[in-house]
Computed example of a mutant assay.
Amino acid sequence: MNDSISSFRKIPLFPLGTVLFPDGVIALKIFEARYLDMIKQCLREKTEFGVVSIIKNSDANEEDVSLSFSNIGTLAQIEDFDPVQPALYMTRSFGTKRFKLIKSKQETNGLWMGEVELLDKDPLMPIPQEHHGVAQLLDQIISVIQSEDLLGDAPFKKPFKTDDCGWVSNRLAELLPISLAQKNHLLAQSNPRIRLDLITEIIEDDDLRNLMMH
C-alpha cells in the first residue's frame, strides 16, 4: 500500500518540443522567471522536475493558449548549473524515472504543475541475438562521438550500458530522426525488449542506419 501511495507525486513541469529518456541528458538555457524560480527551488530542495513534450492541438484556435502535453514524461535531476547572469542559467540535467501525467494545472506565475504517477524503471535485460546489429550501431555512434571529443554535448553519459535493452533502446530513441509522437510511443513502452523491437523495425524500414552514421 505504501509503495502505491509513494508512486504518486506533484511536480513542476518543463514542457518542451522534445522527449527526455531515462539516463539521457538535456541542456537547458533558463531565462523565464517561472523557470528560474523552479530551478532555484529544485536546487535548494534537491528535487526533480518533469520534462513533458508539447503535443500540437490542431483543433485549437490562435486565441486558445492552452497547451496539450504528452501523457508520458521523465523526471529530470539537475547535474550542472551555471548562473551566467542573474536572469540566465545554463543547466544540464539527466533523466531518472518515467512518469504518467495524470493531470496538469497552470499556476498564477505561469508555471505548470503536474500530478504524476511514477513508473517502474526498466528491468535489466540482455540484448537478444537479433538486436546485436542495432546495439553495434550505437557502439559505432559512441565511438564517433568519443573520437571527435563531443561527449560533453552528447545526449547521454557514462556508464555506457550497451549490453542492456533499456539503455540501448533509450539512446537510439533519442538519436533517431523520428517524430515526437514516435518518441513518446517508445517512451511509453514498459517492456524494454519491445521498445528495442520497435526501434529495430524503424531503423530497418526507414533505412536510417547510414543516416545516423553521417
Rank of each mutant, 00 (worst) to 15 (best):
R209G: 01
D139I: 07
I11G: 03
I141C: 04
V51I: 14
L198E: 13
I5T: 14
R193L: 15
L180T: 07
D59Q: 09
I203G: 10
S190D: 14
G50L: 15
C42E: 04
I55R: 11
N71T: 07
M212E: 02
D122L: 01
G17C: 03
F8D: 03
D139H: 14
V134L: 11
E148Y: 11
E62T: 07
T91D: 08
E148M: 09
S4D: 14
E148Q: 15
S7Y: 03
E201R: 13
E62L: 11
T74I: 01
K103S: 08
L180G: 09
L111K: 04
T200D: 13
K183Y: 07
K158G: 07
S190Y: 10
D153Q: 14
G166K: 01
H185N: 11
K157G: 07
Q182P: 03
V52W: 00
P177E: 02
L16E: 03
D163C: 03
V52E: 04
K97I: 09
K161F: 06
K100P: 00
T47V: 05
D205F: 12
M213A: 01
I127K: 05
D197C: 08
S7G: 05
K56V: 05
D37Q: 15
N170W: 04
A188V: 02
E117Q: 14
P126A: 01
L101D: 02
G17T: 05
